[in-house]
Amino acid sequence: MASDTNLLKATTDKVVLIGDVGVGKTSIFTRFKSNEFDESSKGHNPKEDKFTKMWKPSGGSEVSITLFDTAGIERHMSTIPPTYFRSAKAVILVYSITDAETFDSLSNWIENAVSAMGVGTGGLVKVLVGNKVDLDSDRQVDRNRAEEFAKNVDINSKFVLETSAKTNKGIDDLFNLVAMEIAPSVKQSPKGGAPKTEKSKCCSQT
C-alpha cells in the first residue's frame, strides 16, 4: 500500500519505466503519482518526468521510490540519454498485450538499458509488465509467451505481471513487488551488536 506522504528520505531508489510509445507507461506513472487515470496523457508533450513517493508494501519496509517516465521521448529510442538509465535500482519493461510489436521490441530496450548502465547491472531488478489487460479481447501476447521471454533474459517468473493502468488492476502489486525487492531489511548482528541493513532477498532474480 502506498503512503500518502510525499517527503523524501536522505536516499531514494531510482526506478525507470521503459518500452515503446503508447504502451501506457505514462498512465502507470500517473497511477503511481496520484492514483488517477488521465486519458489526456496520450497527447502529452514529450519530456522526461519523475516523481518521488514513499511506498510501504504490506509486511515490508517503507522505501522512497523515484519513478522516471520517458513521457514520449522514446519515439526514437536513440534520443533517450544514457543518464535516464544510470543508477537505476529497477527497470520496469512495459508492453501492451494488444500490440505484439511492442513486445517484440523489448529485447532492444533491455540491450539499450544495460549498455547505458555499463558495469554493475548484476543486482538490477527487472520487471516485465503487460499493460492494458482491460482490453483482453484484443490480446496479441499471451502470458506463456511473456514468461518464455522472461526466462530467456533472466527475469524471474515472479517478476512477470499484467496490469491495467485504466482500471488500476495490478498496479499496487507492481510497486509492492519493486519496493519489497529494493527496500533494505534489518538483521541483528551475530554478536549481538547493532542491526545491519541489507537489501531484501524476498524475490531473487536468479
Rank of each mutant, 00 (worst) to 15 (best):
M1S: 11
A2M: 08
A2N: 07
S3K: 12
A10Q: 10
K14G: 00
G24A: 07
T26H: 02
F29K: 08
F29C: 04
T30G: 01
K33G: 01
S34Q: 10
N35K: 12
E39M: 07
S40H: 12
G43M: 09
H44N: 11
P46R: 11
K47L: 11
D49Y: 04
W55S: 01
W55E: 05
G59R: 06
G59Q: 09
E62A: 13
E62R: 05
I65V: 09
D69K: 07
D69N: 10
A71K: 03
A71G: 01
G72H: 04
E74L: 06
E74H: 06
R75M: 09
H76E: 12
H76N: 14
M77E: 14
T79S: 14
P81R: 09
R86T: 10
R86D: 07
S87W: 09
S87H: 13
S87P: 00
S87M: 06
K89S: 13
A90K: 14
V91F: 12
Y95G: 07
S96W: 02
D99E: 13
A100L: 13
A100Q: 15
E101K: 14
F103Y: 15
F103D: 10
D104K: 15
S107Q: 13
N108H: 12
N112V: 14
A113T: 13
V114K: 15
S115H: 11
S115F: 04
S115E: 15
G120T: 03
T121D: 05
G122Q: 14
G123E: 13
V125D: 04
K126F: 01
K126Y: 02
N131S: 03
V133W: 00
S137Y: 10
S137I: 13
R139L: 03
E147A: 13
E148M: 09
N152Q: 12
N152M: 09
V153G: 00
I155S: 02
N156T: 12
N156K: 02
K158R: 11
K158W: 01
L161F: 00
E162Q: 13
T163L: 00
S164N: 06
S164D: 03
K166H: 04
K169I: 10
I171Y: 00
D173A: 07
D173H: 08
L177P: 06
A179W: 01
A179N: 04
M180P: 00
A183Q: 09
S185I: 15
P190M: 05
K191W: 04
P195D: 05
T197G: 04
E198Q: 14
K201A: 13
C203M: 05
Q205T: 15
Q205G: 12
